[in-house]
């Protein structure tokens, strides 16, 4: 970690980043307590339209009659503030995560609304093709999403094709549930991840 691998990354202005700001962002940006207490997300979910009505009351846009499903922009808003592990810059401003590379699809398309499972695919673009931190960045994205999204989401984080020399290897690691779970119990790695996620909003409902 001592050696900076990419000393001159391309940085995008905050005003150029895709956004659809919602109201009520005044909450402090502290990391939710117990963020990594378990590997299973438990409390900090975005309001989920598929949940039973009891949890609906917290929807921030109160005057809506219909609940909006979670969309790609919302996913982008969750992961773009993640800090790069070696620069004081966000993954959004470094174009590591990009709105067009976020895809939400029903896990069982043939079942329609009968199955609430949703597959979320996020393709990340490492800043340089041999960036050895790609796995850590991918892990940060996966952890952030698993922590913030309801458990009906199946999160697939992968390296965008052609942007990394060992993409397949990184993808295998990021897709391995057991490895991801074990990584989150590794103190050193956890410290790095916690620092990366410091800038993310607390999504308490």
């Amino acid at each position: 970690m001592s050696e900076v691998l990419n000393a001159n990354p391309t940085i995008r202005n905050a005003s150029d980043l895709p956004s659809r700001r919602r109201q009520g962002n005044g909450q402090s940006s502290k990391t939710p307590s117990g963020l990594f207490a378990t590997t299973v997300p438990s409390s900090a979910y975005i309001p989920d339209p598929f949940l039973p009505p009891s949890s609906d009351s917290d929807e921030s846009s109160g005057d809506d009659d219909s609940v909006e499903p979670i969309d790609e922009q919302e996913i982008y808003d969750l992961i773009s503030p993640i800090s790069d592990p070696e620069h004081p810059l966000t993954l959004g401003s470094l174009s590591v995560v990009n709105l067009p590379d976020i895809h939400l699809t029903p896990t069982f398309p043939e079942k329609g609304s009968a199955s609430p499972l949703t597959t979320l695919t996020v393709l990340i673009t490492p800043t340089i093709t041999h960036c050895s931190l790609a796995t850590v960045i991918g892990l940060g994205v996966r952890v952030r999403l698993e922590q913030a999204l309801p458990p009906r989401f199946r999160v697939d984080v992968r390296i965008k094709e052609g942007t990394h020399s060992t993409a397949e290897q990184v993808n295998r690691q990021l897709g391995d549930k057991e490895r991801v779970a074990a990584a989150l119990e590794n103190g050193t790695l956890l410290g790095v991840l916690r620092k990366m996620l410091e800038g993310c909003e607390n999504l308490e409902t």
């Binding site: 043939e110 079942k111 609304s113 009968a114």
Partner: peptide, 9 residues
């Protein structure tokens, strides 16, 4: 079991 579509499976 709830199931939406027979043809697909």
């Amino acid at each position: 079991e709830p199931k939406a579509d027979e043809a697909e499976p």
